[in-house]
Simulated scan of single mutants.
Amino acid sequence: MIDDRIRRAAAAEACWKRFNGKSYDPGKRDCVKLATHALIKMGHGSGLMKGLRYSSEAQGYRLLRKAGFKNLIEAVDARGLPRIAPAMAMQGDLLAMPAGGDGPFGAALAVAMSDGIILGFSHDHGICSTWRANTFITAWRL
């Protein structure tokens, strides 16, 4: 159990170091890249993201649809990760929250940090940061 907590803390810290304070840049720094980084750090590999390149939301969405998914939640579910209640998320787990607006992705992905704090890109200011969110769609145990 202690080893798992140390691994989770290290994965969350790696995500924080790579993304926190950085501006949104599709294909380089976005919620999919953040989630992929968390998956890798938690030992799940990059899966379908391996080798995918996109430089705009439109290109990213086309790749998502080409892979057979309607939204990001379907794409994460396809990884076979167990869904959990968002309140049960531990450090390093993935969370899906409303993306704001009428974006095509169906959700924004974030990484659970500690004490109910998440790391993700805010649609309000486009910077990756930590905050306490109060609305989630679902979560996955990594």
Score class of each variant (00 low, 15 high):
I2Y: 06
I6A: 13
I6K: 08
I6F: 13
R8E: 05
A11V: 07
A14R: 01
C15D: 06
C15R: 05
C15Y: 08
W16I: 10
W16L: 04
W16S: 15
R18F: 00
G21R: 08
K22V: 13
S23R: 14
S23L: 11
P26M: 09
R29E: 01
D30E: 01
C31S: 09
V32A: 15
K33C: 06
K33T: 11
L34I: 14
T36G: 14
H37C: 10
A38T: 11
I40C: 02
I40Q: 08
G43T: 06
H44W: 09
G45D: 09
G45Y: 14
G47H: 04
G47T: 00
L48T: 07
K50N: 11
K50E: 10
G51H: 08
L52E: 07
L52I: 15
L52T: 12
L52F: 09
L52W: 04
R53F: 09
R53Y: 02
R53N: 13
Y54S: 15
S56T: 12
S56D: 07
S56E: 02
E57Y: 15
A58Q: 15
Q59C: 03
Q59D: 02
G60Y: 02
Y61L: 15
R62Y: 07
L64H: 01
K66R: 12
G68W: 02
G68K: 05
F69N: 03
L72S: 02
L72I: 04
I73R: 15
E74R: 01
E74V: 01
E74C: 00
V76A: 00
D77S: 08
D77G: 01
A78F: 04
R79A: 06
G80V: 05
G80I: 05
P82G: 05
P82D: 09
P82V: 03
P82T: 13
I84C: 11
A85E: 11
P86L: 14
P86S: 13
M88L: 13
M88N: 15
M90E: 14
M90A: 12
M90Q: 12
Q91H: 10
G92L: 00
G92H: 04
G92C: 04
D93T: 02
D93F: 00
L95D: 03
M97F: 07
P98V: 10
A99Y: 05
D102T: 09
G103D: 00
P104S: 07
F105Y: 05
G106C: 06
A107K: 03
A108Q: 14
A108H: 02
L109Y: 00
V111W: 01
V111C: 02
A112H: 05
M113A: 01
M113T: 03
S114H: 04
S114I: 02
I117D: 08
I117K: 03
I118E: 06
L119G: 01
G120Q: 02
S122T: 11
H123L: 08
I127E: 01
T130V: 12
R132L: 06
A133C: 14
T135I: 12
T135G: 07
F136D: 11
F136C: 12
F136S: 05
T138C: 13
T138W: 08
A139M: 10
A139F: 13
W140S: 08
W140Y: 15
W140V: 08
